[in-house]
Write a protein that binds this DNA or RNA. Structure first.
Length: 235
DNA sequence: GGTCTGTGACAGCGCGATGA
DNA sequence: TCATCGCGCTGTCACAGACC
């Protein structure tokens, strides 16, 4: 009695070592999506003393994004943006974002509050494209929602619904894909790499550019795989 | 009983400090 | 050198308490 419904699911799964799936709830979530679907992921960096106009200390400054577009037949297309180092990356990133994502498109992010926050801030500082940005903002849905609501729980998630736990639980073969990446394997390294690129020679910079693009692309591909799994279990 | 508000937990993105 | 931990920021959710 002292555990809530969500905790009960966790306990049941842990004791039985079996995944617990609420097919109807997952179907409901899947029904809210429309195609083509745009999977979106940002990489950002922060500065204590902002280098560019209009920034607050430690504000998340987006410098890169990856988008996987999936049509209703499962065909994938990939779009990406990585800013040149040394200049304010935000405006060009914002322009590319609205170039790639139509205003009426369904967008998926994992823990969407982060992506929404970044886009809202871009809309604030660039009023000339705020309508386009806010259209994207308003169409974002959260891929984390089915896990946060415990519609799908796997004992490997260990009580967490962060992507760090969800992905290995659902798509174990993807773990090696992250390990196999060159130079950049997680958000922290991405941020460091972008900052460090300013002091690199051209050869090094090219290697890090490639690594950043590969890492971010894998993040959105991982989201594609997670949704694929959700569709599979909801059948 | 229903609604509003405040609080705490927790997720993502990061960082810097710390310890192995 | 690398991994881990706790912090900031922001948004959502669940819950408790206050209020009508």
């Amino acid at each position: 009695d002292k555990f809530n419904a969500s905790q009960q699911i966790q306990i049941r799964s842990e004791l039985s070592q079996e995944q617990i799936i609420d097919k109807e709830a997952i179907k409901e979530f899947l029904d809210t999506l429309s195609y083509p679907l745009y999977y979106l992921d940002f990489e950002t960096f922060q500065q204590a003393v902002p280098e560019f106009i209009g920034l607050r200390p430690y504000e998340q400054i987006p410098f890169q994004f990856s988008i996987h577009k999936e049509d209703d037949k499962g065909k994938l297309e990939h779009f990406e943006f990585l800013a040149e180092v040394g200049a304010d990356p935000r405006y060009e990133l914002a322009l590319n974002l609205i170039k790639f994502i139509p205003q009426d498109a369904c967008v998926l992010a994992y823990n969407m509050s982060f992506e929404k926050g970044v886009i809202r801030r871009l809309a604030e500082i660039y009023p000339q494209i705020s309508n386009e940005l806010m259209a994207i903002h308003d169409n974002i849905k959260d891929l984390m929602a089915p896990f946060a609501s415990k519609s799908y729980y796997h004992p490997k998630m260990q009580g967490s619904y962060s992507i760090k736990y969800v992905l290995p639980a659902l798509v174990p073969e993807f773990e090696s894909a992250y390990k196999d990446l060159n130079l950049v394997h997680h958000g922290g390294e991405a941020m460091q790499a972008y900052a460090a690129m300013a002091c690199m020679n051209e050869t090094q910079r090219d290697a890090y550019k490639k690594a950043l693009l590969e890492y971010c692309k894998l993040d959105t591909l991982a989201m594609v795989k997670v949704l694929e799994k959700l569709r599979e279990v909801a059948k």
